[in-house]
Write a protein that binds this DNA or RNA. Structure first.
Lengths: 251, 251
DNA sequence: CCGATTTTGTTCTCACGTTCACAAGCTCCT
DNA sequence: AGGAGCTTGTGAACGTGAGAACAAAATCGG
């Protein structure tokens, strides 16, 4: 989702090294499942085994894997180590990606301490904040640096991924600075919609949105009997004004 | 997504008060955009305005809103306050939902401090942890309580939403306890696939998966010229054994 | 060496989600 | 009052994703 890169308008662009976005989003889950199996000393797994570990159904898993190539053996299954490496390579976590975290509040703090940042593949090279009272503070084995140093850090460490953990207010400005400095992937925790130019990928993590989605379903569960079909009508009471009823013009 | 509730196999279940899941996931974004417009003193907004503020296109926004009812006025647009209330009611955030957070590590700490938990609608009633050295610690105006008290808290405060911020290890057990205690919606930050019975909704927030998805796209950006079409073949070097190439049977 | 068994890779079909395009409906101006 | 100009709500076309089902390929036992 939120892929903002170039999109040539020409032909359907078939099999142009194109893995469906839905599949891409599941590959990390498969990777984690494979790592768990590997740690348990399991050398081979069927699509059924893997699917169970990853929480999907086996047909979907096989189809997903088929986009990467034919890495299984019919009648046997998949070699865990081999498949794990193939997926890791496909995702790109066989190399290390340099990451900066901007905004060292509660959440930035927590992420900075997040040991084993996923399962390798990512290296936090700087914690940045514009607040002078925070600059210099030590977190783990890192020190908070001034946001003004962003550009030189990005250049020096070839940073391609930025994590925004600022409040909503400064988030867009931080985002613009990151992009201008050369960052081309952004993970945004601030509760705002950020706009970025084409070629920059942005993903959002939003606690309150997740909670609200849960609340919607929760309401439907508990209310299924209580308020079965009283959706829109009675809610207009107590509201000061309505769209087209406004000044009572015309009629 | 990850809706785990009952699904009757019968007819297509058309218009059974059914808002598409993709739309549900966007309603909170619209709600936030409307709140921002409202705070700016804007009373009326067209679908184009709203769509821009929410980061979607206007056709999609109109279609999404049409599932809720006809709340706009042709030729004019939407009344910001009115629409905001309608969406809030549809989502269910006009009432307050009681939430418990389990696992007061770095992340749990950060979430506990997260002021204005979204935009109202949610109330943290307890912070729980099984670690005796944490129990009793004050965070903001709350005190960490023993996980053993889960059941009585859930019952006393009618808790329907649980947030899991434990490490991966205990997450499934915590999840089971939550479900057994009566929690029917779970937001999981632990990097594991949790299994829950039907009727319980679960959503996942996973930092390392998000980063990996970004890495995939990042790799495709930088590698588009460097390694254009060398996907699977050369990677087999250095691997001890391969699934079907193994003993060289057959041929 | 052959047939039974297992499990992958793929094809086909259906459901879901997105976008386009336009009729319906409202306001405002003359 | 009547027509011009907007903007919504929706029907229809299109694209993407999910799941069932099956043919192809590999192992294993006799």
């Amino acid at each position: 989702m939120t892929r903002a890169s170039s999109r040539r308008p020409g032909p359907p662009t078939r099999t142009e090294r194109g893995i469906p976005e839905a599949t891409v989003a599941r590959l990390p889950v498969y990777l984690r499942a494979l790592t768990a199996l590997s740690d348990s000393g399991i050398a081979t797994a069927s699509s059924e085994d893997l699917a169970t570990a990853a929480g999907v159904n086996s047909a979907k898993l096989r189809k997903d894997l088929s986009y990467l190539g034919s890495y299984g053996t019919r009648g046997v299954g998949y070699d865990v180590e081999y498949l794990r490496y193939q997926i890791a390579r496909e995702i790109g976590v066989t190399q290390d990606w340099a990451v900066v975290i901007v905004g060292i509040g509660n959440l930035g703090h927590a992420l900075a301490n997040y040991s084993g940042f996923g399962t390798r593949g990512f290296r936090i090279v700087a914690l940045l904040d514009a607040d002078p009272t925070l600059v210099g503070e030590r977190i783990g084995d890192m020190e908070v640096r001034d946001f003004a140093q962003l550009e030189e850090i990005v250049e020096a460490d070839r940073v391609s991924i930025g994590v925004i953990t600022t409040p909503a207010g400064p988030a867009q400005e931080v985002c613009d600075r990151l992009v201008a400095a050369g960052v081309t992937s952004i993970l945004n925790f601030a509760p705002v919609v950020l706009s970025v130019p084409d070629g920059v990928d942005i993903r959002k993590v939003d606690l309150s949105i997740e909670l609200q989605i849960l609340a919607y379903h929760e309401q439907r569960k508990s209310g299924e009997a209580a308020l079965p079909q009283v959706p829109e009508l009675p809610a207009m009471n107590g509201l000061t004004d309505l769209p087209s009823v406004g000044g009572g013009v015309g009629a």
